[in-house]
Amino acid sequence: MNVLELFVTALIYPGLLTAVSLALSFEALKRKIEARMQNRMGPTYTGLRGLAQPLIDLVKLLGKEDITPLTMHEAVAAAALVWSISLAVFACLLLPWGLGGLEDMGYNALLVPVCLSLAAALLGLASLSTRSPYSVIGGLRFIGLLMSYDIGLISLVGVAYAATGSLNMDVIRAKLWEGLVHKPFLFPLWLLALLVGFILVQADLGEDPFTIAEAETEVAGGFEAEFSGRKLAFMRLGHEVHGVTALLFYVSLLLAPQPSRGVFAIISLLAVGLVIAFLSIIVDASTPRIRLKDMIKLSWGYLVPLSILIAFLSLMLGGAAS
């Protein structure tokens, strides 16, 4: 790989530009579908049928004045936001796109969710740096909940590892189905992982019913309360890139769209991602927000232990069979 290829990989495909475009496309799609489900038009003015509205919103926020509380640790907030978005984009770069990108180091199935967790924790850290009671409470909620979802996602890697014997994302995407055919006893665990993973991705995307961290009625905007201008733009974009990357990670890990190499690998990954995104938007538009107490009980009390149990059983059964 020469320097030019490295620049293109990191900044255009499948790096920064691709990750940001995917995040904004998901946001546009969500706004249009949700509006239709609620008997509204949604954005109509900017771009084709209003689909460029999230991009314009981002540009507008970047150009707004930045009002910060006196108590804010300005450097911590700025560094946390920039590092968070960079880590989320880097995780997107490491997905098994099937064409181009960086060669897998052999354990990217663990590296991607770890980068995502760190990105989420840094967003929470940015909230804490404001030292405002609203933001600190919102930030702690956000960190606690997002960490639980990401730990669940890391655990679900166990199913893919048991089926394929590898933590290399390219190998997992190429051999998952073959592995499940050869080890049919893993099939029920894979189905369970698929369901748990979808719930975790829904939470990672920050969609209903898991929007408690930013509940306006409870903590006046939650972790975003004291942010405006470019900081709010970076925070929202970071959260969206994080969510979309988590969704594509889930698709690559547990659905492994075929073919796994070539141009059609990119198309199949995005097509299956689109179907899951559509399901996620339908769930978002049709479910109410659940209370914090129930959310914590669900995530740390059920989803995380269940994910660990699925991983444990898969690894035991998969290891015993091989």
């Binding site: 790989m1 990191a10 936001l81 180091m105």
Partner: peptide, 27 residues
């Protein structure tokens, strides 16, 4: 390569942030 790619993304994001802070109006 991984480190270089991450550093490039980090530099690009920082550049966007600094550009936005220069171009945006003062409160």
């Amino acid at each position: 390569y991984y480190l270089a790619a991450f550093m490039l993304i980090l530099i690009a994001s920082t550049a966007y942030y600094i550009a936005a802070s220069i171009l945006a109006p003062r409160p």
